[in-house]
Computed example of a mutant assay.
Amino acid sequence: MSHSLLRPASLALLLLGLAAAPWALAHPSLVRSSPAAGATVAPANQIELQFSERVLPRATRIELRMAHGRLQMAIPTASQQVSADGYTLRAGFATPLSAGEYHLQWRAVGQDSHPITGDYRFTVK
């Protein structure tokens, strides 16, 4: 192959690789939540988190804590499951959440097996 053809082909491959890099490095991110971050909501017995890509059910979960003065009281879930399409985590509670301030921490693992974490707060009135 002549040098005049090799240079444009190399440049095209480099540009293609750079364009695909963000997809290769993508991780799940939180797209929507119910209740939403910072929201004040009525008592509910389910939390729903929707992610930007499929997550692995065995490694994706939430932990919920309720502010009780200076202490944080863990609120156990009755169930946690990822939807059939793999994009939504639903956590259910045996009884509706009582009035108070909550801190939700989540962990999601995408198809690339890298864990991503996040957290937010909401209030139940």
Rank of each mutant, 00 (worst) to 15 (best):
M73C: 08
V109D: 00
A9I: 11
M73P: 13
I62F: 04
R107Y: 03
F51V: 01
A12D: 04
A37H: 04
S113K: 09
V109T: 08
L97Q: 04
R32A: 01
R65Y: 14
H114Q: 09
I75C: 10
T40V: 14
F93G: 02
N45P: 05
Q111R: 13
H68V: 14
S98P: 07
M73D: 11
H27W: 00
R70M: 15
A9F: 09
T123R: 15
F93Q: 03
R107D: 01
P76I: 09
R121C: 01
V124N: 04
G38C: 01
A67P: 14
R7Y: 08
I62G: 04
P8M: 06
L18R: 06
L64C: 07
L5C: 12
R61K: 06
R61Y: 06
P35W: 00
S79H: 12
L11N: 08
L5V: 13
Q46L: 07
P28H: 01
P96L: 09
F122N: 06
Q105H: 11
P28Q: 02
A78T: 04
E48D: 06
E63A: 14
P115I: 03
E101G: 01
Q81S: 14
S29H: 00
S2V: 12
V55N: 00
P35L: 04
G38Y: 03
T123P: 13
L97F: 03
Q72D: 14
R32W: 07
S98F: 09
H114P: 03
V82W: 04
E53H: 05
L14D: 04
I75K: 09
L89K: 00
A24Y: 13
V31N: 10
A42W: 12
M73Q: 15
I75N: 07
A74L: 14
R70V: 11
L15C: 07
G86P: 13
A84C: 11
S10H: 06
I116L: 03
D119Y: 09
H3P: 02
A9M: 11
A24L: 15
L89C: 01
A108C: 07
P35V: 05
P22L: 08
Q80V: 06
Q72T: 14
S98K: 15
Y120S: 10
D119L: 06
E53V: 02
A59T: 10
H68D: 14
S4R: 12
A12N: 05
P115W: 08
S33Y: 07
V55I: 13
R90D: 04
W106I: 07
S2Y: 08
V109N: 01
Y120H: 06
L13E: 12
Y102T: 01
G17A: 15
T77S: 09
Q50F: 07
A9E: 07
L16D: 00
T60W: 00
G118P: 07
W106F: 05
S2D: 13
M73T: 13
R7V: 15
V124W: 06
R7P: 08
A108V: 11
L16M: 08
R107E: 13
R58C: 00
D119W: 05
R107I: 08
A36H: 10
L97Y: 08
G69R: 13
P43G: 02
A21E: 10
V82I: 11
A24C: 05
S83T: 15
T88Q: 10
